[in-house]
């Protein structure tokens, strides 16, 4: 790895007020200020952004797909968390 290689940053854009930031891709930059500018130049040319987050890819912590079963499967059978699980008579309003 040469000394000139710029680190990788992940880019998150909020496209409109009211929406959350969404991951749109990655880019290389030497520092955070440059990363913001690059993100602006690459990912908001078509007015797709009101706010930019950048994070060094090395700092992102991700769940391990191997543990997907343990992490996510238990939620699958807890259908009582979903409103459709409950039978409410039609005459009852506002529920």
């Amino acid at each position: 790895m040469s000394t000139e290689e710029w680190p990788l940053f992940e880019v998150f854009i909020r496209s409109r007020a009211g929406l959350e930031h969404k991951h749109v891709g990655s880019l290389h930059a030497a520092d955070a200020r440059m990363a913001i500018e690059h993100a602006r130049d690459v990912y908001t040319r078509r007015q797709e952004g009101v706010s930019i987050w950048v994070a060094r890819s090395a700092d992102i912590v991700a769940s391990d797909p191997e543990e997907a079963d343990a992490l996510f499967e238990p939620a699958r059978d807890k259908v009582y968390r979903h409103p459709t699980f409950y039978a409410i008579p039609e005459e009852v309003k506002n529920l």
């Binding site: 790895m1 290689e5 891709g25 990655s26 880019l27 290389h28 690459v42 040319r45």
Partner: peptide, 19 residues
């Protein structure tokens, strides 16, 4: 140029670097 960047970015997720 931007398309090249999106694609390099996608390739980097597979374990190869831009460099």
């Amino acid at each position: 140029g931007g398309h090249g960047m999106y694609l390099y970015s996608a390739a980097e997720t597979l374990g190869i670097s831009r460099a």
